[in-house]
Design a protein around this nucleic acid. Structure first.
Length: 304
DNA sequence: ATGCATGAGCT
DNA sequence: GCTCATGCATA
């Protein structure tokens, strides 16, 4: 793997403007029957403990979530990368989920249309240009064709590597690009861009910026092509470190099971889950948030 | 390359 | 308290 240090400030940017416009979250208050809580927790527990050989993350979530929420057919799936695991839904787990989810949709189901609508309104929508994409600053070329995007990401990586520049370097270099409102980015973000693991909107917003960097970098390369050794990047003295809590495998499995049944647990449920798993409530809450976000990420393979 | 976390803006 | 963009720390 490529590794590089990276330490700098971050300033929110012109990308913000784009965010704002595209931003508009739904909020499906689905606190249907409460008496279900107990069985839900128990069910998830059961499911997590008798789990079989399952997924490398995303695919599982996608599948499970799809089951739980019935037909959640979005244009952008999650684990598009991995091979679609063709599972025999004959496991106890599957039975459980099916039962629970069907109950959920049977009672009241105004959620689907709602959720859908919002999502579409939120995205620049590649197939249907509903909202005029707010041009941040630079390139006003918003051909949000997923295909193009994917191609660009790959080209980008290829050329970046050719230039012998690390992801961290690129992120840092963006600041020197002096694009209005565009500051530096982290290695993480560059990496995620290259692997298409950012939200669609995020990809669209970042593309022009990275394009600009690439152009600049290659131009500079041609310019100074005589004899150049290297450009050592200074390291910064680190201050206080931050600790990252790590959720153990068994707990993680339980969380995944809960998530499959109810991706948006209420505060109370979160508290209950936290207590059961002996985790801090906030850790559980954040875990669910991240899980949801993960689910929303793009990752196409053969989907387009 | 990814997991857990923060912070902004919104409801 | 959620979503989203983003990042530090780490496997």
């Amino acid at each position: 793997m490529m590794m590089a240090m990276n330490g700098k400030a971050h300033f929110s940017s012109a990308l913000d403007s784009m965010r704002r416009v595209c931003l508009n979250s739904p909020q499906v208050r689905a606190n249907i029957f409460a008496g279900f809580d107990e069985s839900m927790l128990a069910a998830a527990d059961l499911a997590s403990s008798c789990h079989a050989a399952f997924k490398p993350d995303a695919s599982h979530h996608a599948a499970a979530a799809a089951m739980a929420t019935h037909a959640h057919t979005h244009a952008h799936g999650v684990g598009g990368l991995g091979p679609p695991p063709p599972h025999p839904p004959s496991s106890l787990e599957a039975e459980l989920l099916e039962h629970l989810s069907s109950s959920l949709v049977d009672v009241h189901a105004p959620l689907h249309a709602h959720h859908h609508h919002h999502l579409h309104a939120q995205l620049p929508a590649p197939p249907t240009p509903l909202a005029p994409p707010p041009p941040p600053t630079a390139a006003v070329h918003v051909e949000s064709d997923p295909r193009e995007l994917e191609a660009f990401a790959e080209r980008f990586k290829q050329r970046r590597v050719k230039l012998g520049v690390t992801q961290a370097d690129v992120g840092a270099a963006l600041a020197s690009l002096n694009m209005p409102g565009v500051g530096a980015l982290s290695q993480s973000t560059i990496c995620r861009f290259e692997s298409l693991t950012l939200s669609h909107n995020n990809m669209i917003a970042l593309r022009p910026v990275l394009q600009a960097w690439l152009d600049e970098a290659e131009a500079e390369r041609r310019r100074a092509n005589g004899a150049n050794g290297s450009a050592p990047l200074g390291g910064l003295g680190s201050e206080r470190k931050r600790k990252r809590t790590s959720i153990a495998a068994p707990e993680k499995r339980s969380l995944e099971a809960y998530f499959a049944i109810q991706p948006r647990p209420s505060s109370e449920k979160i508290a209950a889950i936290a207590e059961k798993l002996e985790l801090k409530k906030n850790v559980v809450r954040v875990w669910f948030c991240n899980q949801r976000q993960k689910q929303k990420r793009m990752k196409y393979s053969a989907a387009h």
